[in-house]
Nucleic acid binder design. Structure first.
Length: 334
DNA sequence: AAATCGCCCAACCGCAGGACA
DNA sequence: ATGTCCTGCGGTTGGGCGATT
């Protein structure tokens, strides 16, 4: 099917936006909200195509856009996320609050890529350019190592990635299993391990393979929650994780919260495994359907807000090394 | 001072895919 | 099932601007 490009029409302005145009666009969006970009130019009195208006709004005028230089933290995040997602700028942008995909893409191409090359890191693979495995903190686990031998995984220092999650979640499962019942836990532990790597229904197999070598189970669905964020308690509203008021719909609300870009875009990572201090819980999506599990998880998360140091062990064990049986989980934390 | 170069980044382009009639 | 609209995405372009010659 052939479509006529929207900007082909005669008389439409292209190029840099003027202040007046910006004002018109802002005023219109404030009055009528986003969307309807095709008809917006006429209604707003702009001689631009809708696409141009949408881009101008999305990349420049939106009120939640953070202008100015990227912080070190932002840059680290971008590099880490790029190691996972590659050039999926929109996916990266969703994790960097206030930054647009365009901005991140530009920053990557003009600064970060060069910086990595300077440090001897291939910006495409995030591996050392000289062939040696890089110890550089800006690199991530080899995306291709998902199915490597266990020994390789153990020797990979980045294996610690997710292992904290594994321990934490094993603990959650353990406690939950003791308090609730074995069968539910078995469901959770279930096929291929309890908190396996994640892929959303739309995630490709290749993207799955980019994830942590420790947790990969390509067919599983899942979601990730930033453990550190949860543990420091900054991301959880009391209403979201209240163990006192149990509402069967609560987890729908959690989903809603997690989908809320302004509140959670930087915290809820449904595609990523992070590294070096930023660690992520991985939950099978079915967990969310187990209300009793989620309630228990909620309680434990709340408790753990004050005991984050428990997880700062020097040695961590990946979940793949742990016996998936209930007893195994039980023994694991002694 | 003028010309040239290189960098940066806003904006554009073409394509893909979901929604809907 | 098909066609169209609408939106989002990633890659690319080109104008502005400072640095260098």
């Amino acid at each position: 099917m052939v479509r006529t490009p929207c900007c082909r029409a005669e008389g439409l302005k292209k190029g840099a936006w003027t202040q007046e145009e910006d004002h018109k666009l802002i005023a219109y969006v404030q009055r009528h909200g986003e969307g309807g970009w095709r008809t917006l130019p006429d209604k707003a009195g702009l001689k631009r195509c809708g696409k141009s208006c949408r881009l101008r709004w999305a990349n420049y005028l939106r009120p939640d856009i953070k202008r100015g230089e990227f912080s070190q933290e932002d840059e680290d995040s971008i590099i880490s996320l790029h190691a996972i997602h590659g050039n999926k700028w929109s996916a990266i942008a969703r994790r960097i609050p206030g930054r647009t995909d365009n901005e991140i893409k530009n920053h990557w191409n003009t600064h970060l890529k060069k910086r990595l090359v300077k440090k001897g890191i291939d910006p495409l693979t995030h591996k050392s350019l000289n062939g040696k495995s890089s110890d550089h903190p800006e690199t991530l686990p080899d995306k291709g190592s998902v199915h490597q031998h266990d020994d390789d995984q153990k020797s990979n220092k980045n294996n610690a990635v997710g292992s904290l999650s594994a321990r934490f979640l094993n603990r959650v499962a353990n406690r939950f299993g003791k308090r609730i019942n074995h069968s539910v836990l078995s469901d959770i532990i279930g096929s291929g391990g309890p908190f396996t790597s994640h892929t959303t229904p739309t995630t490709s197999a290749s993207e799955c393979e980019k994830s942590s070598s420790t947790f990969s189970t390509p067919n599983s669905l899942g979601l990730l929650i930033n453990e550190n964020t949860i543990l420091d308690g900054t991301s959880l509203s009391s209403s979201t994780f209240s163990s006192d008021i149990y509402d069967p719909l609560m987890y729908d609300h959690i989903y809603d919260d997690l989908e809320d870009m302004t509140a959670f875009s930087s915290r809820f990572l449904n595609n990523d495994v992070s590294h070096d201090g930023e660690d992520f819980l991985m939950l099978d999506e079915s967990c969310l359907e187990s209300s009793s599990f989620m309630r228990e998880l909620t309680m434990i998360l709340q408790e753990d807000k004050i005991e984050t140091t428990v997880f700062n062990d020097s040695h961590v064990t990946s979940i793949s090394e742990v016996d998936d049986s209930f007893e195994g989980i039980d023994n694991y934390f002694g």
